[in-house]
Structures are given as C-alpha cells and as structure tokens.
Amino acid sequence: MNELSKIDRALPWMLVTPALLWTLLFFVAPFVAMALLSLNFQAEGGMTVSNYSQFFTNPSYYRAMINSLEVTGMVTLISVLLAYPFAWILAEQIPPRLQRLALLLAILPFWTSYVVRSYSWLLVLAQNGVVNDALLRTGLLTDPLQLANTRTATIIGFVHFFVMLLTLTIFASLKQLNPSYRKAAADLGAGPIRTFIHVVLPLTIPGVVVGAFLTFVLAIGDYITPQILGGNNELLMPQLIMMQIGRRGDFPLASALALILMAMVTIAYIACARWLKIERT
C-alpha cells in the first residue's frame, strides 16, 4: 500500500519530466543565456546595462517599440472586428453539415507559404497591382494609391492572416455555447440584439481574448510581414533586432532588444490572464 502511494506520488512527476526538461533546455537555458549576453556578462565578474540604456535613450530605438505597439494594436482590433461576424456567420448561419467545408474553404489560403503570401500582397497592393488597377479602370481614382511599402500594407498583410486565427477561436467559443442560454433569454423577453449583447458576447469573450492575445504575440514578433510589405519606411522591433545581427553581429544588443520585446508580451499575457480569470469564475 505504502509502495503504491510512492508510485502514485512519483507518477505525476514522471509524466511531466519530459515537458519540464524540454522547457528547461529550449526555453529556460536559452533565456538565461540571452539575459547574460544582454548584460555583457563576464565570467571574471562585471556586467552592464548599457544595452538596455541605449534602447531608452535612443529615440530611433524606442520609436521601434511604439511602432510595434501601434501596428500590433491596430491589427488585433481590426482582426477582432472582422473575425467576430465571420465566426458568427459560420457558427449560426451556415447549416451544420456545411460548417466543416466552410471552415476548410476559409483556411485554404493559409496552406501557402507565409513568405509567398506576403510577396503576393506586395504585388496586389503595388502601384501597378490589382487593387490600383481595378480602382483606376472603374474611374474611382485618377492616380494610383500608395498602398505597397506602407504601414497600411503591413496591417493588411497581418489582418489577412490573423482574421482566420481569430475566427477559429471565436467559432469554437460560439459552438460551445449552450443553446438553452439563448432560449432562457428569449423566455425572459430579450430580443436577438439584447440576447447577443448580454448573453452571447460576454460568454464568448474568452475565445476573443485568447485569439486576440495570440494575434498580439505573433504579430509583435513577426519580422517577415513588415519587412516585405512595410518598405522599411519605419522599423518595428523585430526589424531593429535583426539589424543588430546582419553585419555587426551585435548579439548583446540584439538580446537586450529581444528581452524588451518579450517583456511587452509578458505584460500582454498578464493583462489577458487576469481578464480571463474573471471570466472563468
């Protein structure tokens, strides 16, 4: 009996050990190495925060963080606003037997390479691209719009990708909603709009927040989309980090910038985690 309880006690640890080792090797160890590198840590003693102070004293550096927050915030907001009605149509308006097919069709474009898709957007938004061509031919414009190589292009590229991600998380929330809640609201005299605002929306907020958090995390750390579509007319944090490595190989500064970026993600996580906790109670 005593032996059995020992095994019982050890079993959970045995089960989580591979995951713990994985996290230690591929997250904790590189994280500590990066933190030490960012401080120019020396074995014989001594370290400096000069890489961090550079970030806060150089306007071009902290401007990159502001740009990243502005772009990511905008992408997250637009993606949520587009994804919610899309998910609602999929969950509520499409017959259940066609929902799988509809979801498949919706995510089909994402089977192509992310880089190829970004370059495709560049061609679509270019001065001689499909968008400008259509607007000029229909007479809606007399001169082409400057769309490619702008912040707008970066946001369009991001939104195209993240709307689908958010749609999936919101769709899952909507499908998990017990239909009796809506019936109860209707019995109590609530119309469809009131039911949506007071019942459906609050109950699907966890799905929205999870999707929004994923969107924020993935967008703020993305290098490819702003690099291809933004035309380097402003720098975002991942571009600033890459810039330190290319020619000069300044890994300590790149590490410091990466950790600052990570701190922003952590703050976003804390904000979302607190919010989600309230929703779960």
Partner: peptide
C-alpha cells in the same frame, strides 16, 4: 563586442 565569457 563579445566579452571573454561570451564564447563559453
């Protein structure tokens, strides 16, 4: 740029 500790 890299300190003596960096290689290890």
């Amino acid at each position: 740029m890299f300190t003596s500790f960096m290689p290890s």
